[in-house]
Amino acid sequence: MKFNIAFYVHHHGSGHITRIAQIVEKLTGFDITLLGSNLKPFAHLLADDVHLIHLPIDTRSDQDLYFHNGNDVEALHYAPLNVSGISDRIAMMTDFFQKNQPLLMVVDVSVEVTLLARLAGVPTIVMRQHGHREDLPHLMAYQSAEMLLAPFSKSISPMSAQWIIDKTHYTGGFSRFTQENNSKEKRAHVAVIVGSGGTSINAVFLKHLSESCRGFQFYVIGQIDGERSLLTNVEFYGHIDDPKTVLDLCTMVVGNTGHNTVMEMASLDKRFVGIPESRPFDEQLDKANAISSVPGVKIVLPQSLFDTDWNTLLNDLETKVPNWEGIISENALNDAAAAIVAVGKRIFQ
């Protein structure tokens, strides 16, 4: 029996929508809908026949006069009271659930949306992430799901209970880039990737980094917070849809340890200085720990940015041979798509 596929996409940063867009591209012959609060800036990543439902944000607005955090609910991460955005988005989602049966829902990520779908009788697949996620809300979401989908290899999987491991389908890592040789790299060229989800890589740090490493040329990709200094060894590119031409020239990359950045570094086999930012459930710190033993990877904590001898670190790192073997799978996207379809066929046979 033919069934529909929907994806809930969390609004924070660009990582969730980027990986979902890649998976969606491999799902052919299905009516596909994405639901989320920050889809418009990324609509160009999706084919014209992918439906988008723009949900209102779930945080307090000026019109929410009776907003209240309410009593603590151990089974939920986020459940404030009297937020119109939450009421509206739940009404939109349940209406969508009712009108688009049979439906399989992939959630990337939200405990509350996962449980809402299950309560509405919609089977779910939950995307796994790094971090410490064995709290009650996560366990309930994992239990309610038909399958857990990990967009990384089992070799860097976070510590989990055995039943979670058994329920997880590991695709191996993937990114928008393909593995190839690094023949275009130029010595002492360093890319600095500034993410959109909150980062300590700002104008003050870049000034410190560049002044500490006069023998290196830095290429900054992304939007910088703070006033840019006029530095002879720094070029600011701002946002680039495809930064690969810049990355190809660089022997090393400095960036945060968000999922997509790490997978892109693995795909390009780059020497990488990872800076794990503060995230819920220590996601980036857990990811940093998982890759810390990879040859050609150095981890620097945000609190150590101005105490680190960057000149020594970069000179030493440039002598290393990176080896991300086992992190990326060439068939990961096809595998993810096939796993999603297999769940749907099992349920709607």
Rank of each mutant, 00 (worst) to 15 (best):
Y8V: 06
V9P: 06
S14N: 10
R19H: 07
R19A: 01
Q22E: 14
I23M: 10
K26I: 02
L27N: 08
T28W: 02
F30N: 04
I32L: 11
T33A: 12
L34T: 08
L34M: 14
N38I: 08
K40D: 08
D49H: 15
L55I: 03
L55H: 05
T59V: 14
R60M: 14
Q63N: 08
F67P: 15
N71Y: 08
N71F: 11
N82C: 05
V83I: 08
S87E: 09
I90T: 03
M93G: 01
T94H: 06
F96C: 09
Q98Y: 14
D108Q: 04
V109S: 12
A117F: 07
G121P: 15
I125C: 04
V126H: 15
H130C: 14
H132I: 09
D135F: 06
L136F: 15
Q143V: 04
E146M: 11
M147D: 00
L148E: 02
I156A: 01
D166R: 06
T168I: 05
H169I: 07
G172T: 03
E185W: 09
A188W: 07
A191H: 12
S196K: 14
T199Y: 12
S210V: 03
S212Y: 03
S212Q: 15
F216I: 01
Q217F: 12
Y219I: 04
N233W: 03
V234F: 01
V234N: 00
V234Q: 02
P243S: 04
P243E: 00
L249C: 05
L249F: 08
L249Y: 06
T251F: 07
V254C: 14
H259M: 12
M265F: 04
A266V: 00
S267K: 09
R271Q: 06
F272E: 01
V273R: 11
F281Y: 10
E283I: 02
V300K: 06
L301S: 02
L301F: 05
Q303K: 09
L305C: 11
E318L: 12
K320H: 12
V321F: 12
P322K: 14
G326V: 00
I327K: 00
